[in-house]
């Protein structure tokens, strides 16, 4: 295709957009809203998924060693626990470190509860047991609670129940989010299709003349496809702004969030990746929708 033809096609497409200004604006806005919700949903889903993926490493069984146990005995105990099937990693948290951690959290939260200890350390040594499979929690916890096998372990805390609830909630959020995203994706595709359909109707005279004088079908379709891609891209650009705003808000919120689990959010997708994905998705959707619409509504003379 020559440069001049390409220029002509772009010219025709922009002529369509300008002449059907209101309709184009409507479709761009709809695409923007849908893509913004879609983009935010996908981003949040991504975060939820990341959070869920991180859980087997995050949640662990805490086994508190009796006060009488010496540090070297505790180290032997650690090696023994490590051999239990389903255990990923065991780390020994000395009581001094546990106290320091507790005081840090206390001060960070702005309270002064630990000041009341005045130098005393009521905390025992602790074994943090990470599991290779979160489903093994209950079994491993039961073994650790067995006084015959582990007489030196006084108390075992597992976060199974809390973890179960948390995972169920995130799973629900993920599933609902995916359903909503899918619906929005379909709605967006439909809106673009409808816009192209209206354009075909508005341009039926031009299209008929093109067909009669023997314009190639590519030439007839190209301005319509360009228009579809334009609508998809323009909507996505607006959506990008909205999504980046949402991401900033969510990140700030997550930063302020105090949770009972000392988990750290894994690094999020970089904004440029999100922008790239949204633009690509918008363009692809515009292209596919307009192609479908052309196939359905473009009549041959």
């Amino acid at each position: 295709m020559s440069l001049s033809s390409f220029g002509f096609l772009i010219e025709e497409a922009s002529r369509n957009v300008r002449r059907n200004g209101l309709m184009s604006a409507a479709s761009i806005t709809t695409v923007a809203v849908a893509m913004a919700v879609l983009g935010s949903a996908v981003f949040l889903l991504h975060r939820v998924q990341q959070f869920m993926d991180a859980q087997p490493r995050q949640f662990e069984i805490a086994a508190f060693v009796t006060m009488e146990t010496s540090r070297s005995k505790a180290a032997q105990l650690k090696a023994k626990v490590q051999r239990i099937p389903g255990v990923y990693r065991v780390s020994l948290v000395p009581r001094e470190a546990a106290l320091r951690q507790m005081m840090d959290e206390d001060h960070k939260a702005g309270t002064r509860i630990t000041d009341a200890l005045v130098g005393a350390n009521p905390l025992p040594d602790r074994l943090d047991v990470q599991l290779s499979d979160p489903k093994a929690t209950r079994r491993v916890a039961a073994i650790l609670r067995d006084k015959d096998k582990f007489p030196a372990i006084e108390h075992v805390r597992d976060d199974r129940e809390t973890l179960d609830k948390l995972l169920a909630t995130t799973r629900l959020i993920r599933n609902v989010g995916m359903a909503v995203a899918l619906l929005l994706f379909l709605a967006t595709a439909f809106v673009i299709q409808n816009t192209i359909r209206l354009t075909i109707f508005a341009r039926r005279r031009e299209i008929r003349v093109m067909q009669l004088v023997g314009a190639s079908s590519g030439f007839i379709r190209m301005p319509l496809v360009i228009e579809g891609v334009f609508c998809g891209l323009a909507g996505s650009i607006i959506a990008c702004g909205l999504v980046l705003l949402v991401i900033r808000q969510v990140s700030q919120f997550a930063g302020r969030l105090q949770t009972p689990f000392a988990f750290t959010m894994p690094a999020a997708m970089s904004p440029s990746v999100i922008v790239g994905l949204l633009l690509a998705a918008g363009a692809a959707m515009g292209w596919v929708s307009s192609t479908l619409s052309i196939r359905r509504y473009l009549r041959r003379v």
Binding site: M1, S4, F8, M210, V213, F219, I220
Partner: peptide
Amino acid sequence: AFALRVLGIGR
């Protein structure tokens, strides 16, 4: 001109 332009004929 339209009839020529859609056949890819230059300005």
